[in-house]
Design a protein around this nucleic acid. Sequence first.
RNA 1: GGGCCCUUAGCUCAACGGUCAGAGCAGACCGCUCAUAACGGUUUGGUUGCAGGUUCGAAUCCUGCAGGGCCUACCA
Length: 570
Amino acid sequence: MARFLLTSALPYINGIKHLGNLAGSMLPADIHARFRRMQGHEVLYICATDEHGTPAELAAAEAGMEVSAYCDQQHGVQKRAGEGFALSFDWFGRSSSARNRSLTQHFAERLEAAGLLEERTSRQVYSNADGRFLPDRYVEGTCPVCGFERARGDQCDNCGSLLDPVDLKNPRSKISGSTDVEIRDTVHLFLRQPLMQERIRAWVDAATEWPALARSIAYKWLDEGLQDRAITRDLAWGVPVTKGGAPRPGFENKVFYVWFDAPIEYIGATQEWADATGGDWARWWRTDQGAGDVTYVQFMGKDNVAFHTVSFPVTILGSGEPWKLVDRLKAFNWVTWYGGKFSTSEKRGIFMDQALDLLPGEYWRWYLMANAPESADTAFTLEGFQAAVNADLANVYGNFVNRITRFGQGRMEGRVPVRGPAGDAETEVLARMRAGLADLTRHHEQMEFRKAAAETRALWAAGNEYLQKAAPWTAIKTDAAAAATGVRTGLELAALFAIIAAPFLPESSARVLDALGVAQGRRGWPSPDDPALLDRLVDGAPFSAPDVLFARIEDSQVAEWAQRFGGGPD
RNA sequence: GGGCCCUUAGCUCAACGGUCAGAGCAGACCGCUCAUAACGGUUUGGUUGCAGGUUCGAAUCCUGCAGGGCCUACCA
């Protein structure tokens, strides 16, 4: 038995996430968490909402709410959406928690003690109308290079030039549109990342298990040379900046940058979990307190990789304390909506809460992971979703369970028949299950989600092949023993299929196993050479046929959803 | 501007210098009738974006071109 610490990139508090966000970090982490638990390992799966930063303040203002109240509300919304998708977090925390506040302040003070922090004055755009400093992307103006009138503060979308917002002509606030803006000096804490350059590179060099995507992104940053990075902002909402435990002089109206405190919340959320459950957080995070044997896996979209491979490790390593660092990192590309971007404003794409209004979470879990964007961006299409749900879940798996349990109920009096001697069909299907289970287990262990889903499906399909060969509906006319063997084997297969499906489809799996009367102790992840692989039911025990597991998606539904969510390439 | 990635069957994707480029779905034909008109078998379908090059051998490596995408540190 091993120990696995799993974290999903923190979803930002600003509104409900779309299916792409779900597929790129939370869902795969949940699949892996469930798989490792089924193997009998000790798992701690942590996530949280990322609540600080300018967008949260603006969203709260737009909603006419205090930021903290807004975050309270949105945290609840996201938590419920996660529950709707059966995300099995051990804890779903909040980066605005007291635990994260003190941890963030602690790390900053450690970094300062190590000589890695420096106060520095910079020039920022201040909007009098909005009463706040404006992040680069919230300043608009005329591009000094090409004259484009709607250039962003950091980059001109017309000519591609990288800009400094103080160089924009006719600058205005993107928030209010006001041109009443000025350049002000402001002091911030800078993290002297170049001092950590070689330590980070050595650490990345050693991380040979990371996927190519993650390493190439990390090396790009390192090759370009790490830069000093401001880790404070002129905002009201966030973690206050301290020095020696007291408010830091000159920083009374500043807070830490959201990207500084957000990853620290992985630890903070674990402390929140410990506070709530009596668990021992240090055993998971401090290598001097038992975390040495923990395997830590992070799940994230590719936009997050640099922060997890470079920025956060600078914080951790720079502290000089024995914190656990990531061991394996699983990064995903994007799920696109018909090849384009999900967009709230243009009403393109389905968001988590909307998806749950249409169908239960499992339908989405299956499609998103069977088509996980592991090697490249992947297009979500309603037609593909319909095809996958109907073919894989309704026809191949759901119908298999339905046909064998209903036949058994009608012809075997709803009691598990006693198996006769195995024939060719039984020997063959058992060998197929052992071989497939070995592949499937390896795919899960390597976090190859597409391959895991494909192999799961292939095993379900092999069940239908078996039934075609055994044909108990024919055998029962002439050979009662052969029919009993066919039904028994079919029921055993149904139980096995539900178990291997459980990481993807936990709720329907439980329904199947309950209907078949499989004991809780027989629901773990099986070993391919388990002598009782197809022998977990009890002779003569009653079983029932579960209700239809997955309903087919009709063409009319697809047409309606396409209308509502902007389906099809436009 | 700089860097990285992608383009393979109608659709979504595999194949990562070596047997006829594969799978699922969709399509066609046959079979079964236990089952959600589900299932099984067979099968059609590709000048691997385009043009060159390296190699005994290229989807795979190199160069150029076309189209699409991502990152570029103050959005998170």
